[in-house]
């Protein structure tokens, strides 16, 4: 039996299909992710193609309203850009930033957590105090601070192209302590297990034991936290962009779209900000629900 059919036959998949919340959340995430990843192919318009923009199309309401234009399903903004296409491209950037940021957090968190949990003693005490200090600040504050400092440190000419990495770094740095703490806790439990002693007895090095034996055994809870944090990272990015310190309007993420659209909310053009907002909310909610389900599904005690 190959790996795929074994996976499809597993309890995990069975549990999934029996849980409507999980199925609906997964469906929403799937639609949003596919729309974002394949935006260049699927989007009805290209909002970055200045030639195709026509100011005559600006501020058109959604297609389903009385004055709507069937060409623009969710209406257009003040530049005549299609809101739906904007959302698809924006989600692409939001997701990219969030995934990279969480990836970065994971690497740092896993490294610190494994080291602290395995080495124990002074190393553990030092690393965990660093974590404690950082956890006393709200993560968005850390992200804002790091973002501001890194921006100021970079030469102006490089800012534009490195913008996205600055955001990734800022969000990643603000979220690693959670991972480090979780990994450390699980590592301290696993370290006591006989198989770790057995690995020492066959002469494996500490690094090898940590990476090939302990890490796989502590990844379960971390994946759940990573999923939940993915939703939060998307929000972090949106918050930074909304505050105007995130991605520039030339690379609009969902947060940027919401911020720009916000200016039009009170003049009646609600669709420019509401639709990106709804997309953001639906995506983050779905990811969180999926993460919750994952936590329960992977926890044998709740079965």
């Amino acid at each position: 039996m190959n790996a795929v059919s074994r996976f499809l036959d597993s309890d995990f998949v069975y549990q999934f299909w029996r849980n409507p919340v999980a199925v609906i959340s997964a469906a929403i995430v799937l639609v949003v992710v596919v729309g974002a990843v394949f935006a260049p192919i699927l989007a009805p318009h290209n909002p970055f193609d200045l030639v195709s923009l026509d100011l005559m199309d600006s501020l058109k309401p959604p297609a389903f309203t009385a004055e709507g234009d069937p060409h623009f399903l969710l209406g257009t903004d003040d530049q005549g850009r299609d809101v739906l296409s904007g959302i698809m491209y924006g989600t692409r950037i939001s997701l990219l930033v969030a995934v990279l940021a969480i990836g970065f957090s994971l690497v740092v968190g896993i490294g610190v957590g494994l080291l602290a949990g395995y080495a124990g003693g002074a190393v553990d005490a030092f690393l965990m105090r660093v974590v404690d200090v950082q956890l006393t600040f709200p993560s968005i504050l850390i992200a804002l601070l790091v973002d501001g400092v890194v921006r100021a440190a970079l030469p102006r000419s490089m800012q534009e192209q490195l913008e996205i990495y600055v955001i990734v770094f800022a969000i990643g740095i603000s979220r690693w302590p959670q991972f480090a703490r979780t990994i450390r806790g699980s590592t301290m439990v696993e370290r006591q297990r006989d198989y770790v002693m057995a690995a020492k007895v066959i002469g494996l090095s500490s690094g090898r034991i940590m990476l090939t034996h302990i890490l796989p055994n502590v990844m379960g809870p971390v994946l759940v936290i990573a999923t939940l944090n993915l939703g939060l990272a998307i929000l972090d990015e949106a918050t930074l962009s909304f505050l105007g310190v995130g991605l520039p309007p030339t690379q609009p993420s969902l947060g940027t779209l919401i911020r720009i659209g916000n200016n039009f909310l009170f003049s009646g053009e609600w669709w420019i900000t509401i639709f990106p907002g709804v997309t953001l909310a639906a995506m983050v909610l779905s990811i969180n629900l999926l993460g919750d389900w994952l936590r329960d599904a992977l926890n044998p005690r709740l079965r």
């Binding site: 006989d194 198989y195 057995a198 020492k200 007895v201 002469g203 034996h213 796989p216």
Partner: peptide, 28 residues
């Protein structure tokens, strides 16, 4: 030291523990 013992462990002195249920890594 630990680094000096490593080539000895397993290669020149092997060990078997009490509980076979826990001495094997469950994920390997």
């Amino acid at each position: 030291t630990d680094a000096q013992m490593r080539p000895i462990r397993g290669r020149r002195i092997g060990a078997i523990f009490q509980d076979p249920l826990t001495t094997l890594d469950p994920l390997v």
